[in-house]
Simulated scan of single mutants.
Amino acid sequence: MSMFLEAFTWLADSAAWMGATSIGHRLGQHLIITMIVVGIAAAIALPVGIAIGHTGRGRGFVIAAAGAARAVPTLGLLTILALAMGIGITAPIVALIVLAVPPLLAGTYAGIENVERTTIDAARAAGMNEFQIIVHVELPLAAHVILGGFRSATLQVIATATLAAYVSDSGLGRYIFAGLKSRDYPQMLAGALLVAALAILIDLGLSVLQRMVRRSVEPRMPRPRSRVAGPSLKGAS
């Protein structure tokens, strides 16, 4: 308990919120890294996932490749990339993209693939081409599932982006590595709490957005009419 009190004392210290190494500065770096990584991963995964979900082709190969990418330890990959690319932010970004692509890819093709075939057939019968079907039918109906993949990828990147401080002076992970190196465990715990708080806040925001999108695409089912029993004709003369 005393460790947590010391961590909160460190967070409440005005010195931690001032200068180039302030919490606000590190938080901004962490968010920028996350946005860059998720943006690039989405640019890779969304078109591939849409194509797989729409055509059904290449599903097995991409699932196997995504599973293999998930199995790669991020710290080990980061170390290899840092040795190849040098110290800096490039290696962490590439390693985090490899981490973010699988959940985005899985969410996209699963969402597109699960759209009712009867709905797609009706769109074709109405004269829509394949591009129009993807844009106006499949993507809106699959949006909440795609957002689920986006949410999962974002949380994984936020948590793992702490490793960026392993080879660069960036992000909230710097407090964790600096605290570990200097045995300043309150600072180390404070860094972990900041990452956890950021992940929780982002998750809450994305969960609200996902529910809103899901409700917007849910079909409005007509309410069943109440049946009023009529007069019995049994025994009527």
Rank of each mutant, 00 (worst) to 15 (best):
V37S: 05
H25T: 12
I202G: 00
D13V: 12
L96F: 00
A190Q: 04
A43V: 15
L27K: 10
L198S: 06
A42R: 05
L206D: 07
L180I: 13
G39T: 03
G60E: 02
L77K: 02
A178H: 15
G49D: 02
V37Y: 02
L172A: 06
G191E: 01
A190N: 05
R151E: 07
L96D: 00
A192I: 13
V135N: 02
G179W: 08
R225P: 01
S207I: 09
S2C: 00
W17R: 02
L189M: 15
V94R: 09
I93S: 06
G107K: 06
G60Q: 01
R225M: 11
F4H: 07
Y175L: 13
I44K: 03
I40C: 13
W10I: 05
T55Q: 13
I32C: 09
A68T: 12
R151G: 04
P231V: 13
A142H: 08
I36G: 01
T154H: 02
R211G: 12
A43C: 15
G49A: 02
A16Q: 12
G149H: 15
L204H: 07
A42W: 03
T9D: 15
A159Y: 05
N129G: 10
A45L: 00
V167H: 09
V94H: 08
P92W: 07
V115S: 03
I133V: 04
K181E: 11
V94C: 11
W10D: 06
S168R: 11
M212F: 14
G149F: 14
P140Y: 14
G148C: 10
A143G: 11
A68K: 03
M128K: 00
F177R: 14
F131D: 01
A153E: 00
T79W: 03
N129M: 10
V135E: 02
L96N: 04
E113R: 01
T119Q: 13
S237C: 09
A95H: 03
L201T: 09
P102A: 11
G53K: 00
L96Q: 00
S14V: 13
S216V: 09
T21W: 13
E6M: 09
L104W: 03
T162K: 09
R211K: 14
L155P: 02
M85C: 14
M18T: 15
F4L: 15
L75R: 08
V195E: 01
S226P: 11
L83H: 14
L75N: 08
A106E: 01
G86Q: 10
L204Y: 02
L147N: 04
E218I: 06
T118N: 13
G107Q: 07
T90E: 14
L104N: 06
L198C: 13
F8S: 01
T118K: 11
L46A: 07
G28P: 07
R211P: 06
L105C: 11
A142R: 00
L77D: 04
R57D: 13
Q210M: 10
V101S: 01
A126C: 14
T162R: 10
A143Y: 12
H144R: 10
L172C: 04
